[in-house]
Amino acid sequence: MLPLLNDKAWPGWGRVWLLAPFFILLSLFWLTPLGKGVLLSLESDTLFGESTFVGWQHYRDLLSDSRYWRAVLNTFLFTVSTVSLTITLALVFAHSLLRCNRRIQGPLAFGLMIPGLCPPTVLALLFLLVFHGKEGLLNRWVVDPLGFETINWLSDPDFILSAVVIQAIWRWTGFMAFFLLCALNARSQEILDAAKIDGAGFWTRFVHVTLPLIAPTLTFCLIYLIIDCFAQFAGSYVLFGGSGGMNDAGLLLVTYAYQKAFIGAGFGSGAAVSLSIVPWLAGMLVLVAMVPRFIWKEGSNR
């Protein structure tokens, strides 16, 4: 086998040997299932016997499926609230980490990141403590002292989604704060000092100097979180045991695809739901990628 890898025997093929394993596995375990999924979504839902070609029928059914639109709405609500809150909190943490003593900075960052190591299944288990009935921590320490009525987080349709959001925030904030901390550390000190000498306050420096400098990292964090939210399955699966929670208030798109495929209709419509996530996700990412460009344009016009 080794002489085969020798470039002298196969000039120019050295690169191909290095590229091949990745792209072979990619076509085998990503491209093929994707193609199979597209075909599946165009076939009827017969579990036994031959399935027939039904064209766009499943997708057309989805358009008039109220549960599907509920799942779309929930997924967007979940994503937007998780991402915005996580990034805001992470920025606050990153700035605080920058400010505090170097010696405790490392251990604190390490501690904040540990929830991100917790498998979503375990995390959902733990959060039963936080959301548990009347006695849950959130009720006992936050809701009651503030004088609100006790909230039944996991069965009140108005609050189910916030339970999933809180869980996701808890998981990702530490890691995002760490990424942002690295980006903050990499800022050029000269530019920061120059802005300071010019008399720019904290907010002015943050908006006009820091944000443009950390924009690439920020965009990466946003994209990563959005994709993770759209693909979220484990957390809500454990919290609600594979259902969408009361009145489908916690139904997300991936859970719905799973339900359709294995509990309800069949593989055809399940595949259709899965694939219909892609344009939603792509649309959302394009929107996020456009934002910095938009702001930059605004700035240069001034």
Binding site: L19, F23, L26, F29, W30, T32, P33, L34, K36, G37, L40, I227, A231, F233, V254, A257, Y258, A261, F267, G270, A271, S274, L275, I277, V278, L281, A282, L285
Partner: peptide
Amino acid sequence: GLLGLGVLVVLIPAQMVALPLFIW
């Protein structure tokens, strides 16, 4: 082209092709 393929793989994570992947 290759990098574009990489972007597509990021965009369509395994969770979304889980069902056909399972069959395959």
